[in-house]
């Protein structure tokens, strides 16, 4: 009876935290109502597990605590679930997300459930020891902090996006001096020249260069750009595939897309706001060798 408020308070704080972490925008799947329900349900279970932890410990119900640990293990399945769904959808995606992006999204969902659990533990514990006002304050602070933490760095932080010249050298499509692809049909070449957009993504330092080196990161940029600006790529139209290739000497990435909405400022904005994937994030400048090599 004693710990009812604590459990309910912890549960409420956890669910609230999960709701704030559910951002329904174009980058973060789920964008579908049913997935939303799945995630809120899993979030509620996670918060319940968190909320029960401290009361269970205080009542010396150690068996219960072990079961909680087992239940927490289940959240690893969230990651698998997300990964499987997205990988299946990938087969019919004209501009794929890329495995790195999928892995990043899956990892994020798993981590968010742990953060939910953590919020519930803290809120539940504070209610037991200090009362609900402190708990509410702590929950609010955690939720605010999570808003900051969850937004990792974006491509705009590590690189500059500039407009670039799209041109042909014979049949070869070039963005500035970067080889993109060989286009055989004259009509297609004309269409690409008149309707295509090209940008050059210049890394700001060696860390940025290492990140843009990742093929997964480039695919994530392409997917986001194609999802937002539209793409003329279709089944049987491989010529209009958006591409990102790097200049092997400088590490700058040339990006080409045939969008439905030809607007450079929008494209720049989209690329700058694409998240830097965890799996692509590399920091050679944090090592001594990397720093020496960079000068």
């Amino acid at each position: 009876m004693l710990y009812h408020t604590s459990i309910i308070g912890g549960l409420a704080a956890g669910v609230l935290a999960r709701l704030f972490m559910l951002r329904l925008d174009y980058r973060q799947y789920p964008t579908y109502p049913h997935d939303l329900i799945t995630h809120i349900a899993l979030g509620s279970i996670a918060s319940l597990i968190g909320a029960v932890l401290i009361p269970a410990l205080l009542l010396k119900q150690y068996t219960a605590v072990t079961f909680l640990a087992l239940a927490a293990e289940q959240f690893r399945n969230v990651r698998n679930m997300e990964r499987e769904t997205l990988t299946k959808l990938e087969e019919t995606e004209l501009v794929p997300r890329g495995l790195d992006y999928i892995e990043g999204i899956a990892r994020t969902f798993e981590a968010r459930n742990y953060l939910t659990m953590f919020t519930a533990i803290v809120a539940g514990g504070l209610i037991v020891w200090f009362g609900w006002i402190y708990a509410a304050a702590a929950a609010a602070i955690i939720i605010l902090l999570l808003q900051f933490i969850k937004t990792g760095s974006v491509v705009g932080d590590i690189a500059e996006v500039n407009v670039a010249r799209l041109h042909f050298q014979g049949p070869v499509l070039m963005v500035e001096d970067i080889f993109m692809m060989n286009v055989g049909l004259a009509a297609t070449r004309d269409k690409i020249l008149s309707e295509g957009l090209a940008v050059l993504i210049n890394p700001k330092d060696d860390n940025g260069r290492a990140i843009l080196h990742s093929v997964g990161q480039r695919q994530a940029i392409l997917h986001t750009a194609a999802a937002l600006l539209g793409t003329k790529r279709d089944i049987g139209e491989p010529d209009f595939m958006p591409l990102a290739r790097k200049n092997i000497d400088t590490g700058a990435v040339g990006l080409f897309i045939l969008p439905l909405e030809k607007d450079f400022e929008c494209l720049r904005n989209i690329i700058e706001r694409t998240p830097v994937l965890e799996s692509a994030s590399r920091k050679p400048l944090d090592t001594q060798a990397g720093r020496i090599a960079s000068d």
Binding site: G170, P171, G184, L185, A186, A187, G236, P238
Partner: peptide, 25 residues
């Protein structure tokens, strides 16, 4: 040549490439 290439690329879901010597693939 270009017309055949276009039709074939549509049928085969392939991409047309130009070797630069008058040969399309």
């Amino acid at each position: 040549q270009e017309r055949i290439a276009l039709y074939l690329s549509r049928v085969l879901n392939g991409m047309v490439h130009d070797l630069g010597n008058g040969v399309l693939l």
